[in-house]
Amino acid sequence: MASPKIDRRRQVRDAKVRVRDLSLWYGDTQALFGVDLDVAENEVTALIGPSGCGKSSFLRCLNRMNDLVPSVRIEGTVEIEGQNIYDPSVDVVELRSHIGMVFQKPNPFPKSIYENIAYAPRILGLGARRSELDEIVERSLKRAGLWDEVKDRLETPGLALSGGQQQRLCIARAIAVSPSVVLMDEPCSALDPVATATIEELIDELKDNYTIVIVTHNLQQAARVAGYTAFFHLGKIIEFNDTDTLFTNPQEKKTEDYITGRYG
């Protein structure tokens, strides 16, 4: 008797982001195949899976960064707070102001610590007066756990900070415009264990104010920081569940094989 077809649509209550039947091609090469996923509000959702499985491609669909890739083609819908971000009427610049992005390698602007944070709010007209910008900079650095370390040297170049501090600066920069969603693409892979622990503590604190989606190759990190985890393989979501269940009682053999180190 054939086993019942597994429902690949992963629904959660209070979803901030709803992805339905999302497929992506780079030229003739298909990278994502009919992905369905809900991202819970004010939670951390981790995307795990072997290299080249589509995690980062999926993440970049959530703020339309794949639009910048020549010959990319996307089908399906990505709704954030009920708005399909691929609707032709959507202003992509405005969209990205609501979705912060933190990359694998810290990438501060070649500007002062202050200007790294103030740049985007100033461009978007969020800080008309210097006092308003000062408040945004201080609030962002405090939320990123960096204020006490840099408050007396805000005019110092951001590139003069340590790697872990630079990544926290990039997180502060990402949240300076008060986004509703923060995307993180392996934010700790270039950091030492001490800096990684600091970033993980920060992620846990930030989820009170932001919906976070993180790509990580580190299964232990996913287990530590994420409330939900999606396992990608060959451009598909094989399994999605709350993190504790997925790691302790996976329903799919591919998931079990991956988290127990049989491949990947």
Rank of each mutant, 00 (worst) to 15 (best):
I85N: 05
L22P: 01
R173V: 07
F232G: 01
A176W: 04
S56F: 02
F247Q: 00
D36K: 01
R60M: 15
V69D: 14
A230M: 01
A223H: 04
F33H: 15
N209M: 12
G27V: 08
E256S: 08
I203F: 03
N42I: 03
V137D: 12
G27L: 10
E41C: 08
T260F: 11
L133F: 05
R73T: 09
W25C: 11
W147N: 10
G164T: 03
Q251W: 05
N107P: 01
R143P: 06
T245V: 13
F232W: 03
K254T: 13
G127W: 00
Q166T: 09
Y86I: 06
R73Q: 15
V78Q: 04
L206E: 07
V215W: 01
L161Q: 11
T216N: 06
K5P: 12
N241C: 08
K207V: 12
E256T: 02
R73S: 13
L154W: 10
V35A: 12
R13Y: 08
P106E: 15
L62T: 03
A118Y: 05
Y228I: 07
V19M: 10
I171D: 05
A222Q: 02
L202F: 04
E205I: 07
P108F: 13
T156P: 03
V35W: 00
D28P: 09
I117G: 05
G125C: 10
D91I: 06
N42P: 07
D67Q: 07
S140K: 03
A195W: 11
G164A: 06
I136S: 04
Y258I: 01
A223Y: 06
A190G: 05
V102N: 10
F58N: 01
A172N: 04
W25S: 10
D204C: 11
Y228P: 09
G145H: 07
P250I: 00
T245Y: 08
P50F: 04
I117F: 03
I199P: 03
P193M: 11
L95C: 03
V72Q: 09
V69I: 15
D7V: 09
G261D: 15
T211R: 01
I85G: 06
L32C: 10
V225N: 08
E186S: 07
E239H: 00
P50S: 09
V150N: 10
T229A: 03
T196D: 01
V150M: 08
Q83I: 15
